[in-house]
Design a protein around this nucleic acid. Sequence first.
DNA 1: CGAAATTTGGCAAAATCTGCCAACGCAATT
DNA 2: AATTGCGTTGGCAGATTTTGCCAAATTTCG
Lengths: 159, 159
Amino acid sequence: MARNGFDAIDRKILREIQEDGRISMVELADKVGLSVSPCLRRLRKLEESGVIRKYVALLDPAHLHLGVNVFVTVSLTQHDEPSLRRFETAVQAHPEIVDCYAMVGNQDYMMRIVVPDPASYQRFLSEVMMKLPGVANMKSSFTLHEVKNSTTLPVSDID
Amino acid sequence: MARNGFDAIDRKILREIQEDGRISMVELADKVGLSVSPCLRRLRKLEESGVIRKYVALLDPAHLHLGVNVFVTVSLTQHDEPSLRRFETAVQAHPEIVDCYAMVGNQDYMMRIVVPDPASYQRFLSEVMMKLPGVANMKSSFTLHEVKNSTTLPVSDID
DNA sequence: CGAAATTTGGCAAAATCTGCCAACGCAATT
DNA sequence: AATTGCGTTGGCAGATTTTGCCAAATTTCG
């Protein structure tokens, strides 16, 4: 058996539900070559194992008047555990901050912000970002357009 | 009526399905204060309008042995339309490149790569990234850990 | 080779989805 | 103020899907 306990069928299921999270068991079972019962049982197991985090609908930012993406790198004044935790907790509270990663090297964090327009970012920058706890330095880079924004992870055949 | 034709109930629906893409019409209708029929009709309308791009399952990268994220900035040698298009098309073909944005400024790109480990990135860098059409310059930044990776867009009350 | 454990497939009841139709509310018009 | 017309709602019924259960089949392991 494979390292993570996924066999070929499990991987097929994972690939399918990444593309269509609302697929019916009937159709999914058919696609992976099982009958409905074992297919559902495998799906439940995958959900319980935590590989499947959640099911969501993906919305189009343009339709919601959220067409402006800004990448921001942040460095903190202090790097002790409590300071990092305080900053990361504050980040979680703001839905405009859609992504945030702790970085190796001199920039501590890389984040992506979603706002309606540049003016909104101006406001968000001064009213929220600047007030995040422990920020020493910040650098913003605006995006021109989205080329790709995928939630589909490559599920390896091996492993 | 609001600018995009969404009323309070539509926005409620959008917020709910962003959090649970598999919610049943019965439960959704209950949460937004409608009966099932009009709720489903509104959802279908939202789907057809394009606000709802798709329904997906979100997987946990760690469980799939995809724990390493790398941010890469790229600049191209030429910035004419065909060169840009060629590059962006090539980007679409690789599932390891999960995000890619064209940036304001030096006309370059910011992308996020997902790989199993640093060694894999080394390989991906030389075998794929370096061979992307028209690349002049590339700079990779490794992440330490994920603080936030959200697909939930803030659906404004106004607008 | 044989026993135990796991996985499968089909069935039936419960729940859900989906299309249809009458009723309701609201706005514009007379 | 009454009426007309448009859009939205709610309930109902048939079709589909989900879900738990059990016997059969397959795999695992001594």
